[in-house]
Write a protein that binds this DNA or RNA. Structure first.
Lengths: 214, 214
DNA sequence: TGTTTGTTTGACCACGCGGTCAGGATGAGG
DNA sequence: CCTCATCCTGACCGCGTGGTCAAACAAACA
């Protein structure tokens, strides 16, 4: 009766097989949860808030997800994929400087269009990544190592100036996510007549151009 | 050491006039609260946790502070001062590039030695700065405008390469605070045999040298 | 010493929270 | 129309939480 087919992460290839209503409501819940979690953090969010934002009653929401934590976990695991996509697209065969700049642009664009996801991620990191640590040391670490090696090669070959590839990646993360995570601060300082993201775009382009020029 | 004689929020100039015990316990509470709030966020922290960490009973803690929120607010308002100190020391009469690099170093050093403060601040920003917005638009904005003007002058005079002064400041904030706020992520990627902060120091030195060189 | 002021505590309360449950409404297929 | 699985809800529960209070305890000081 109450069993909503759950992939569970471990189960691997079992198809969820959901009805139209399930599909729609699960989406609404995840969307609402993203909104609420990213704004108040895990502990600060209540299931009632999420349910209301999703247009459901609390028991009805619990009909689709076994617990508040389950929603959070599902949100995080799907998030990591989207989050790493821009880095995955960094092409080892492309033009080095253009590739890195393009990656930075993709990342900045994500901060602009998906600030809630950025904040959700930041929240999790701040707490010490209690529910993501394994993912960090798995997919994330592997991908970072992979792409860092590419950048290191470019450095060695003299295609770009010498830089620590890991910290270059960190720099891109820090600089782009800052505009989403600390948006209040940025706007408080710049005032209402500025477009932080477009300004950031030109500033960061200059920054990385000068950093990588040889 | 650090003086904790703080205003009560209401009276502008009223002297607190505290006993030795009050002094000691208030300090212990604020220290404990910093630890707990920075780790779990405001909602995630409980008064019991803070009291225990401070070596007090819950009612006893509430004897020194009227509420959980009062502790949080006091923490935040004293924090902003420490947080802006490095920028305040940026000397308009000093050597431009050296001043900016020195500022970056002070900021990075703060991330290394005061990561809990950094995370507390980050948490507040992520939530949209509900209890700090006025401070942001007050002291912070004023200071940022002041120093941005200095940097802009340096740019105009050709002492450093042309940069947007505001986004240069944002970049320093983002790059340095990242190593405190996202420490788990950084360590997960670099592994245990690295010292993120010393590596960051040399990387950021290079970065800002290249950015500002003309 | 006794009295006043400052400090600490156990017991307690109201409430919001995550989660449950029995059963009612609403489909979709026959 | 009936049937059955899916969907939804009001009422409820236990617990953790922020905060209170009267009373016990400790200092200070005369």
């Amino acid at each position: 009766m109450d069993q909503t087919g759950e992939e569970d992460g471990t189960g691997a290839g079992s198809a969820p097989r959901r009805t139209r209503i399930q599909q729609k409501n699960r989406e609404a819940i995840l969307e609402a949860a993203l909104e609420v979690f990213s704004q108040h953090g895990f502990r600060g969010a209540t299931v009632d808030q999420i349910a209301q934002a999703a247009g459901l009653s609390k028991p009805n929401l619990l009909y689709y997800f076994p617990s508040k934590e389950a929603i959070h976990i599902e949100l995080l695991s799907t998030l990591l994929d989207t989050w790493l996509a821009p880095l995955r697209r960094l092409d080892p065969e492309g033009d080095p400087k253009a590739e890195i700049l393009a990656y930075m642009h993709r990342k900045l664009e994500m901060s602009r269009t998906l600030p809630r996801e950025s904040r959700l991620f930041a929240n999790e990191m701040l707490q010490g990544a209690p529910r993501m640590k394994d993912m960090l040391e798995g997919d994330l670490k592997a991908l970072a190592q992979d792409k860092a090696a590419v950048i290191a090669r470019w450095s060695d070959e003299g295609k770009i100036a010498a830089v620590d590839p890991y910290h270059l990646i960190f720099a891109i993360w820090a600089l782009t996510q800052h505009y989403a995570d600390f948006e209040v601060q940025v706007r408080a300082i710049l005032g209402p007549d500025h477009d932080p993201f477009s300004e950031a775009d030109t500033f960061l382009t200059t920054l990385f151009n000068r950093l990588l020029a040889r």
